[in-house]
């Protein structure tokens, strides 16, 4: 049962493996350059486990930021995770003891996999999601620690490798688009984010984007819900 779930989960995590190893190594190199050993890289990747937050964390640590400022920055950078939990309440409902770990390991990439990958019929779904989450986390821990340990040995030109995450989201977006008849939620997500990005700039757009997405989805609930239930009926 376990082996089957692991086998089913592993192939889905390959793109994340590539992305996390390289982004993790990048993090490790940067953190080490600020005077923090690989133990810190390991520790942070285990207990924080968030890509953009850990990168921001390097600056906070290097500058010796105040606890209050650190808390505020973390909240602003991580607030988008509220949406992930909100859309997985039903999926994770029966996870039981696995739930705290599933929640801790809910990154952007893991969320996108959990949303888009269907577990095989003969596999416990929450075990399948747990393996996806744990595999992703292990790639991240390995990447971060390796980067801090042997950072100086990586000399080939990796510029642009971080695009692997963008590519992952574009592919999932394309998949959803092809599978879904109603494209309005996807369009609302892109349009609200793009408009807010132009209005508020790259560092401040995520909260207005979340609010406007939630508002528009709420206002058009009746019409969007009707469309969704029409699809469920054969």
């Amino acid at each position: 049962m376990r082996k089957k779930a692991l086998k089913a989960a592993f192939p889905h995590t390959l793109p994340v493996m590539a992305g996390y190893l390289f982004l993790g190594i990048g993090f490790g190199i940067l953190l080490e350059s600020k005077g923090f050993s690989f133990l810190w890289a390991f520790f942070m990747s285990v207990i924080i486990y968030a890509g953009s937050m850990q990168y921001a964390g390097i600056d906070l640590l290097a500058a010796g930021a105040s606890p209050l400022y650190t808390a505020m920055m973390t909240l602003i950078i991580q607030i988008r995770h509220l949406f992930y939990g909100l859309s997985l309440i039903e999926k994770y409902k029966s996870a039981g003891k696995k739930k705290p770990l599933l929640i801790h390991e809910l990154t952007d990439e893991t969320y996108s996999l959990v949303c888009s990958c269907e577990p095989p019929k003969d596999v416990d779904p929450s075990l399948f999601y747990l393996f996806i989450s744990m595999l992703d986390h292990s790639y991240w821990i390995i990447g971060c620690t390796l980067g801090a340990l042997l950072g100086s040995l990586f000399t080939f030109n990796t510029a642009g490798i971080d695009f692997v995450m963008t590519a992952l989201f574009i592919v999932i977006f394309t998949n959803q688009w092809l599978e879904q008849k109603d494209h309005r939620p996807a369009v609302i997500g892109v349009a609200c984010s793009a408009v807010c990005l132009v209005l508020f700039g790259p560092d401040r757009f995520i909260i207005p984007a979340m609010i406007s997405i939630a508002l528009i989805l709420t206002v058009f609930r009746r019409s969007l819900e009707k469309e969704a239930s029409d699809h469920e009926d054969p």
Binding site: R80, F83, Y84, L86, S87, L88, I89, E90, K91, K93, D108, Y111, S112, C115, M165, T166, F169, I170, I172, F173, Q176, Q180, P185, A186, V187, I188, G189, V190, C192, S193, A194, L197, P202, F205, I206, A209, M210, I213, A214, L217, T218, R221, L224, E225, A228
Partner: peptide, 27 residues
């Protein structure tokens, strides 16, 4: 779970992946 939250759970993933694409390209 309140029906409103169940509804959000159904439509949000499509909107959020769109948001994440924009998020990746923000700079």
């Amino acid at each position: 779970t309140p029906p409103y939250i169940v509804y959000l759970g159904k439509v949000l993933p499509f909107a959020i992946i769109g948001m994440l694409v924009v998020y990746c390209l923000k700079n």
